[in-house]
Design a protein around this nucleic acid. Structure first.
Lengths: 155, 155
DNA sequence: TATTGTTATACTCTATAACTATA
DNA sequence: TATAGTTATAGAGTATAACAATA
């Protein structure tokens, strides 16, 4: 379609990857009885260890109400447990169960495998450029979002 | 965190960009009274012209039932119209209204602006590498998904 | 008999507001 | 009075199944 702006082409590729990646992830998670939102909770707990629901809500950038629902589902699936806070009887501490921890380990293994599939047959030098440029893009986007209310993409 | 596999680093950057990009898009769309799913319909209609709902369902990889709901919302917002099919009285042809077309134009302009923001201050040579590697990654992912049921990522 | 789109039903994610129990 | 988490309510996205109209 007539060689466009290289930046536009790069963004197009990113967006296409987003779509494809998102669908594959969703299918993979569904096969494990998970949803993207619930897997976020698991990843977060694994990164930070046991956490208050309020802290989880902030980290996931969602409402406390939503965390209640997500933790409900994960607890029912036996992937997390709700524990009493040692000093604050209002607070709930959410922690990964053994099954939950095992499941996230599996997700991480899948992710590494995925990285291999996506970038196979490409020299490390190119991959390094991609990682560098995209990491910088994330930073720029964060700054832009913080400055202006919204930069605006689409999908 | 100890220099990891460059491929893993690149995937991490992609995923981080996905999260940040996704949130910004969602905010931008919400400001226009849109959702990601509805904007997909608009983009699709713009790419292909007026379409049957059944074709839309396939293109969006969702159920016909879902298309009914999405088109309902867009029609109510005055962005698309439902028209009779010339020969098949069962079928409904969905088309962008002028307002809908205008809105997608605006989305595209925002997308181009976004591409500029993300990749500012980077030489074209690097951007070209990124576009090339990511486009290849999308292809590989599609093949992998078609071959194995799911490659598995996470989020 | 097959196809198009709909209604019916259900589940998840998300958000806001009101409420309870603590602090 | 403020905070943590819940219930109440509502809208959107998605999926399956049953159904009407048409092919």
């Amino acid at each position: 379609m007539s060689a466009p702006d290289p930046r536009q082409a790069a963004l197009d590729a990113v967006l296409a990857l987003v779509v494809e990646l998102g669908e594959d992830m969703q299918h993979g998670l569904a096969a494990l009885g998970l949803t993207p939102a619930r897997s976020h909770v698991l990843w977060q707990l694994r990164a930070t260890g046991p956490a208050h629901q309020r802290v989880l809500a902030e980290a996931l950038r969602t409402s406390p109400r939503n965390v209640t629902g997500l933790v409900d589902g994960l607890q029912q699936a036996g992937l997390v447990s709700r524990n009493a806070h040692p000093t604050d009887r209002r607070a709930v501490v959410v922690a990964l169960t053994d099954a939950g921890e095992q499941l996230v380990d599996g997700l991480e293994a899948g992710q590494q495998e995925l990285a291999g599939v996506l970038f196979a047959d490409r020299p490390d030098s190119e991959i390094a450029v991609v990682a560098d440029v995209l990491a910088a893009a994330v930073d720029r986007l964060r700054v832009a979002v913080a400055t202006a209310p919204t930069v605006r993409g689409s999908a």
